[in-house]
Amino acid sequence: MLNKVLHVILLFFVSCSGNSDSMISPETEVAIIPSNLSLTIDVLGLDTENPNGDGSGTITCKATAFNAVTYGFKIENEAEVKSASGELDYTFSREGTNNYLVTVFAYSSTGHTISLFKTITVYVGEKPLKLVWSDEFDVNGEPDDSKWGYDLGNGCPNLCGWGNGEKQYYTNRPENVKVEDGVLKITAKMEAYQGFNYTSARLLTKDKYEFTYGKVEVKAKLPSGSGTWPAIWMLGANIDTVGWPACGEIDIMEHWGHNPKIVSSATHTPACSGGCSGTKVGETTVNDFSSGFHVYGLEWTEDALHFSLDGTILYTYKPDVKDSNTWPYTKPQFLILNIAMGGNWFTIDENFTESTMEIDYIKIYQ
């Protein structure tokens, strides 16, 4: 009898032990958490004389952690960059001495992660500019059609008077535009043509050359005569989709014949454009505007627009708050050269016959 009882107890124990073992799955994954994450950042060329680097803007990041199989790096708000080795080389482009946030993530084989961040100070020196586009107008005849197109007519029916009450009819005839003796000549004339009393030309690089950021230099001699309105300017290449002024306008040089010695630069944005009393305008006096050549310049960076005359900066547009209303200058723009005649707010001298703007060269550096 005792043997039978012991046999029953043994069977019950074996049965219970078997059920308990079956509750543990051999495939149950144990979370692996990285630990001891460290980050070192070396700034290239950093020494006692260059405490924020040698100006190249290059850094080398090295991260280590226990139980990590891969790493990820974020520079400021840029997209995360994965690195199996835990190393990353990065070069900053913003000129000057600036602080940057660098964040590193360590990932384990189970996808668990820890992170660490550091703030570093890096100096980026001024980069030498390279000539990326130019026209020196060395071949007589028509302007190079691989570089220049034309606006023709008076803007009708959609924008008669080109939105300003202008009186000219734009053509591409040699009477109004030609290359001669090493310069581009745009001539505004009083003549009856296509129902208008004045003709002129408006050249543009739209769909041929458009760029974002850079330095523009235009060596020009301006026309004279009350009623003339020559301009060297730029418009956002997205104007056909977003319209004006959302595309942004940059007037490198504008001149009005009725105010002969004053040359101006201006910006037009959704925040302030056209007749807005706050339109940003920089003016300077140029006594020999029509008898001598001057270099009208623009330096366009991510932060500001610097307008210059013969290499001297005269006016800067740098809004404190940069958004789509005040700073639409983050997308490509194209160049425009023209002489308009008349406008909504000024008249043309009845004795005007013709006058010419001469362009010696245009150079764009980046």
Rank of each mutant, 00 (worst) to 15 (best):
V242Y: 05
T171A: 00
A304P: 07
L204D: 07
F334W: 03
W256K: 13
W244T: 10
M357L: 12
C61A: 07
M234K: 01
G236V: 04
N344D: 12
T113P: 05
Y193E: 10
H255I: 04
D288Q: 08
N287C: 00
Y296N: 04
T356M: 05
I41L: 04
T97F: 03
T241R: 14
V177M: 03
F12K: 15
L203F: 06
Y329S: 04
S108Q: 09
V124T: 15
L314S: 13
G57S: 03
K322V: 03
M190A: 15
S109M: 13
V122W: 12
A220M: 10
M341T: 09
L235Q: 05
D135A: 02
C276W: 06
P332K: 05
T284H: 00
F73A: 12
P245G: 13
S146Y: 06
K189Y: 06
A106Q: 13
G311K: 07
L46R: 09
A188W: 00
V295W: 02
W256R: 11
S25M: 13
L335P: 00
G342H: 11
F289G: 00
D360H: 01
C272D: 10
K189M: 04
S17W: 12
Y315S: 14
F117W: 15
Y90M: 10
T330I: 07
K363E: 01
Q194T: 06
K167L: 15
M341L: 15
V286A: 03
V43S: 03
Y90G: 12
T356V: 10
